[in-house]
Design a protein around this nucleic acid. Structure first.
Lengths: 332, 332
DNA sequence: GCCGAGCCTGACAACGTTGTCCAGCGTCGT
DNA sequence: ACGACGCTGGACAACGTTGTCAGGCTCGGC
């Protein structure tokens, strides 16, 4: 910029004015400056600009795995809103590891992002307190944060799971397996709660051995599914006749496992899948809308940046049962 | 930082040294500084730090749509490598719009990202010349850039399409439809080339009416698929007996359209889909590995940041034909 | 001809950090 | 006892921009 000023024979501030299209520069001078800018290939350094002005025009997004379809749809919603506000997006994955979440979030804070959107992996977000105290806006996404007062945007996990389980019950199932993520994850816990509620409402007992939670890798899930479907013979439990799979990765892994088995249980999954309608029978799912989730959270975040200081809100988005057939298979 | 220095009764630079764990500070002083830091909830401002040091420890990623499974898998690869290098990731979508691509890329340049990874939407990237001249590293991803010398990491699009088409030919198909993206997109053009080559090698003529390119929305693709399968009656062309669908979105839309039709053509798709193996018949695909694509490109980028000034490279990653049955349906 | 208003313009400080350089002080070797 | 050296700590400038403010110029009115 100094060079541009020298080349155009004007002061530093005049160049700044031209670059920012401020008023108060005569057309002739402006033209001279613009020529110099073009000749030197000058581009304003926004880091410096933002250091001076205080805002960074960027928001941070910490999610579980940027490569997961759910996370990426969520990012899309966030990005769309950020873009409307002229903000760039820092994105990073926590890999469901509290330490990584913390490190990532704090790195973003050190970069002085204007706002932070976090899909919590850890159970305590108190480490963000000093940051919010000094003006950072935080919104939690998909799961509530803990140890700090902040907005959260969630899906109606329990309600969705109730609806999905009830659908299976309505089609005659009495022994329904629940296959979920790690049990300490909020969404998994809520969905499990919904499952229990639906069973309870129908007056059905729940055998704890019908509930399988753990890592979502195909091997673990496959083993869980096989156990649920064959537990009868050794006299410990009746095998289940239907499965409620509590998120997209579990559903996927369960379907793969089922493809190798003779058994044909009814299945309802939480989260829609791209090809769900084309399977035969079509896969019945409880669909959330991750893009709207992201969009809503981002809106909330920007409201906060606009000095909205109302008490923290918790927004819950509805889920939708999409019936496609796989939940209607009768119990064997 | 000034406040911390005052609170600890030391100079500014000493605080800086403690924060950066530089040597030359006595343990006692360091402890005092650390106490002050904790009390004041101080966090180093990395924007300022990076302004001073010149590097920003961040890379920019411009892709087509952050919510698309292909893009998001790609991001995952990029993020993993960026993370290894202690870099944060700016991500944004071009929505296949050259102007948006340009605006986004330039915004990232203005932020002085250390490197830029771009999935080109536009046909000319000359606008990046001033940036590369002043030290920016650029790597193109999935498609080559134009109007500028830079590295590119691509899939073997033509080879993959050749293999996919040849697979259909091997199972007796002679009239094969090609359904693709917008024809000016490099990947689409290359895949079309591969398709033509495979047909040519087999001595089969290609009727231009078998080739449908355009937007990938379900309506357009659905119309194209129906046309390809029913063009016979009015005497203009024989309907095709097989489809080669040239990317994940087209494949998805085509499968949806086919579900509503009595016809049952053989299908081979470019790009793997999550549930492809569970359809019946299983969907045969030409799979690329977007995560490796992203990882490779990011590695290349960081090599360049490490002052690797060898001439621009073009890396081509192999594709893999995954046979699952849908390509083996005989011609009607 | 003088003065004030209004318009352009540029000098300067500041944002929060780090690199450079130098001063103070204690220790050690001769 | 004296100089050299090592270690610790701090003053200052700089990164590239913007906000503040004051100065110079032109022009119109008296």
């Amino acid at each position: 910029m100094k060079d541009v000023a020298a080349a155009a024979g004007v002061g530093l501030k005049t160049v700044s004015r031209v670059v920012n299209e401020e008023s108060g520069v005569s057309p002739a001078t402006a033209a001279r400056v613009r020529t110099a800018i073009a000749e030197l290939g000058f581009r304003r350094n926004d880091s410096a600009r933002l250091l001076r002005t205080g805002s960074t025009a960027s928001v941070g997004l910490v999610l579980e795995d940027i490569g997961d379809p759910f996370s990426s749809a969520l990012s899309r919603g966030v990005e769309a809103v950020a873009r409307e506000h002229g903000c760039l997006l820092f994105a990073g994955s926590s890999a469901e590891d509290p330490d990584r979440e913390r490190a990532l979030a704090l790195a973003l804070c050190a970069r002085r992002v204007d706002g932070l959107l976090v899909v919590p992996a850890g159970g305590d977000h108190g480490y963000l307190l000093p940051e919010t105290a000094s003006g950072l806006a935080v919104v939690f996404l998909d799961r509530p944060g803990a140890g700090i007062e902040a907005d959260a945007v969630l899906s109606d996990n329990a309600g969705g799971a109730r609806a999905g389980t009830a659908h299976l019950i309505a089609h005659g199932h009495r022994r329904i397996g629940f296959v979920g993520d790690l049990p300490h994850i909020h969404t998994c816990a809520e969905r499990l709660r919904g499952y229990r509620e639906a069973m309870g409402t129908a007056g059905l007992p729940v055998d704890e051995r019908w509930i399988a939670t753990g890592p979502t890798d195909p091997v673990t899930v496959g083993r869980a599914v096989r156990r649920l479907l064959t537990d009868g013979p050794d006299g410990r439990a009746e095998p289940v006749t239907a499965l409620f799979t509590a998120n997209n990765r579990v559903t996927l892994a369960a379907l793969r496992a089922l493809a190798g088995l003779p058994a044909r249980p009814a299945v309802v999954g939480f989260d829609d899948l791209e090809l769900a309608a084309l399977l035969s029978p079509g896969l019945t799912v409880v669909a959330q809308d991750p893009e709207t989730l992201g969009r809503t959270a981002a809106r909330l975040l920007f409201d906060r940046l606009g000095r909205d200081t109302s008490p923290p809100r918790r927004v819950e988005l509805p889920t939708r049962l999409i019936v496609r057939g796989s939940g209607e298979l009768p119990p064997a």
